[in-house]
Simulated scan of single mutants.
Amino acid sequence: MTLVNFNNRTRNTAPYFNNVFDSLFSDAITKNKMVNKSPNVNISETESAYVIDIAAPGLKKEDFQINLKKDTLSVWAEVKKEETASAKDFTRKEFDYSSFARSFNLPESADGDKITAEYKDGILSINISKKDDSKLQHKEIVVS
C-alpha cells in the first residue's frame, strides 16, 4: 500500500477551483442521505399511557394528520411549497421541505378512544391512554 501526502497549500492557492468540486460532491452526498429521511421518534410508557414524541421542527400543527385504523396509528405531515410572485435569484438554495409518514402498531392495552396530540417547540407528542383493565393487570404472585 502506498501513502500519498496531501498538499494543503494547493487548496489555499486556488480555493475557487477546489470549492466548486467540494460543493458538487457534498451536495450530492447530502441530498442522497435526505431522500428517505423520516423524523426521529421516542416512545415511552407510563402506568397510565404510552407517549410517542416525534421530532419535526419547522412545521405547523396544521401540517400534521394523525389517523387510527384498527390498531395502527399513522402520522404524516406534508409541507406544500408556496410560489411567490416575487421570486428571488438564489445563488444557493438549501431550504427544502417535503413530507414524511410513520406508522405505529398499538398494543391491545391502548385505548383508541383516548388519544391526544400536541405540537410544541418542534416536537409532536402523541399521548395514548391505556385501557382501565390493563392498569389493574399487574399483580404479585406468591410462590407456595
Rank of each mutant, 00 (worst) to 15 (best):
125 S>E: 09
137 Q>H: 12
69 K>T: 04
119 Y>N: 00
38 S>C: 09
19 N>C: 04
126 I>A: 00
12 N>K: 14
77 A>W: 02
113 D>C: 03
84 T>K: 14
42 N>T: 13
122 G>Y: 12
83 E>Y: 08
7 N>P: 00
100 F>Q: 05
28 A>T: 00
31 K>P: 01
78 E>D: 00
87 A>M: 09
118 E>H: 10
45 E>T: 10
111 D>Y: 06
112 G>K: 15
127 N>F: 06
82 E>A: 09
40 N>H: 08
4 V>W: 02
116 T>Y: 01
90 F>Q: 11
135 K>Y: 02
90 F>G: 07
33 K>S: 00
61 K>G: 03
115 I>D: 03
116 T>M: 02
112 G>Y: 03
99 S>L: 04
133 D>K: 14
48 S>N: 13
79 V>G: 05
39 P>R: 08
110 A>H: 04
36 N>T: 06
77 A>R: 08
28 A>L: 04
94 E>K: 13
52 I>C: 02
61 K>R: 11
141 I>L: 10
6 F>R: 14
40 N>K: 12
32 N>F: 07
6 F>H: 08
4 V>I: 14
78 E>T: 09
111 D>C: 07
109 S>I: 12
5 N>Y: 12
88 K>R: 10
99 S>C: 02
19 N>P: 00
135 K>F: 00
121 D>A: 09
46 T>N: 08
87 A>S: 11
129 S>H: 10
17 F>G: 03
20 V>I: 14
31 K>D: 02
22 D>M: 05
15 P>H: 07
14 A>H: 04
72 T>E: 12
88 K>M: 09
9 R>H: 08
52 I>S: 01
76 W>F: 15
141 I>Q: 06
50 Y>W: 13
76 W>L: 14
24 L>Q: 10
52 I>D: 00
66 I>G: 02
52 I>N: 03
27 D>R: 13
97 Y>F: 13
84 T>Y: 10
98 S>G: 13
130 K>M: 01
69 K>A: 05
130 K>Y: 04
141 I>G: 04
43 I>F: 05
52 I>A: 06
73 L>F: 04
